[in-house]
Design a protein around this nucleic acid. Structure first.
Lengths: 212, 212
DNA sequence: CGACGATACGGAACATGGTTCCGCTTAGCA
DNA sequence: TGCTAAGCGGAACCATGTTCCGTATCGTCG
């Protein structure tokens, strides 16, 4: 996974960087490592404690100081957005990897869907956080679709080609369905979205015996 | 407008209140007055500064201390809910009053709609605030429909009976339409929901000349 | 290899906003 | 006219985002 955060749009200063720099944000590798650590820590904490997790907790979990967070991510919202992009990226890369590593395409699809649910749980708090910069949210959302739909399609196609699932379900339908199953997953302990999603994926295989 | 806030469900203590107390929350009238003042101040501030208006600002606007707020409304969310109910109540009472006072039923409808927009602006921030107690939000929402639909219907019927508007629009359709026009009205200065709503209401009168 | 400057780091200090506490005031009653 | 409990104001407290700055470390250059 590459940096994938705020390096895309350079600061106003026309830095005399040689043109062929291999797009790493910084020269010191401890800084890059810390950034990664932070993104991971934040992602984990967002899953367990929601996007409202205090910045201090994230710093503690990552084992860094507050200053470190704020140098990498000028603002809390920036961190959240970075986590979001980071997760989209991970998810996109996980597709082919799982396909290669898992026992079967369907198993890969199941594992991928599970990761997707993690992502959605993080995502849901997002809209509330991004009230201010809601154009940024639109951008993010389209980025999310552009990046992930092909990956999901690939997983579905592979499973279909292997004859492991009944064909005809589009990636968009699946992702939308999973997304909807996850709506309101927080703040309701009686509701287990993950289980329902798992059932859905199992149901995708045609070999479950009908009831009678 | 009566108290309309947290008196409905009594605290756990079985207070030895005589059974025929005329359901006023408190014995001292300054307290009741302060509560009203607070609800009004909060409502105004919510319109101009959003539901995120600091408690201190509300206290200042109402000319009371912080303690006063927190005695009447144990928590920020309680205050917001109370304002919501209070506004629904005001809106419900405003219907007949406007009908009696305004020059024509259509004028009454126009004024009422304007008040309704004020209310919606306040309302939209609400969902975010009530993450925790989302059952309470459902309750509130149905209360809102139950209370307001008849009022709006009465206004529409009066205007229709006076021949001032083209008939056939239900109260639900109107309220829903206005509500949708107001979605996202905050955080976008280029969008003036109020103007669009006004246009809609004007359009309700049939006497605008078609273009050709 | 050692010095040195830029880069990054940690965390104290600050700002802001919700909530609690408590001594003082006052309405309502006898 | 007192008395007393209900109310009141606002200082103090706590939690959280953000800034600042002295210190530590990396990477380079002599």
């Amino acid at each position: 996974m590459n940096d994938s955060s705020d390096e895309g749009a350079e600061r106003g200063t026309p830095s005399p960087r040689t043109e062929d720099t291999p797009r790493k944000g910084t020269r010191r590798k401890d800084a890059r490592r810390n950034k990664e650590t932070l993104l991971d820590a934040a992602a984990q904490l967002f899953v367990t404690s929601g996007v409202d997790a205090p910045v201090r907790d994230i710093a503690a979990r990552a084992g860094v100081g507050l200053g470190t967070i704020y140098r990498h991510f000028p603002t809390r919202a920036d961190l959240i957005i970075a986590v979001y992009r980071h997760q989209v990226e991970s998810l996109a890369e996980a597709g082919p990897r799982l396909l290669a590593a898992a026992g079967s395409p369907h198993a890969a699809l199941a594992r991928w869907t599970d990761l997707f649910v993690d992502f959605l749980v993080t995502k849901h708090g997002l809209a509330a956080v991004l009230q201010s910069d809601n154009t940024g949210f639109e951008t993010l959302h389209s980025y999310f679709l552009d990046r992930l739909l092909p990956v999901c399609t690939e997983l579905l196609d592979a499973a279909a080609a292997a004859g492991e699932i009944r064909p005809g379900l589009t990636a968009y339908q699946l992702m939308r369905g999973v997304g909807n199953l996850c709506v309101g997953a927080e703040s309701d302990t009686r509701y287990d979205a993950r289980r329902l999603v798992a059932l859905l994926v199992v149901g995708l295989r045609g070999d479950v015996m009908p009831q009678a």
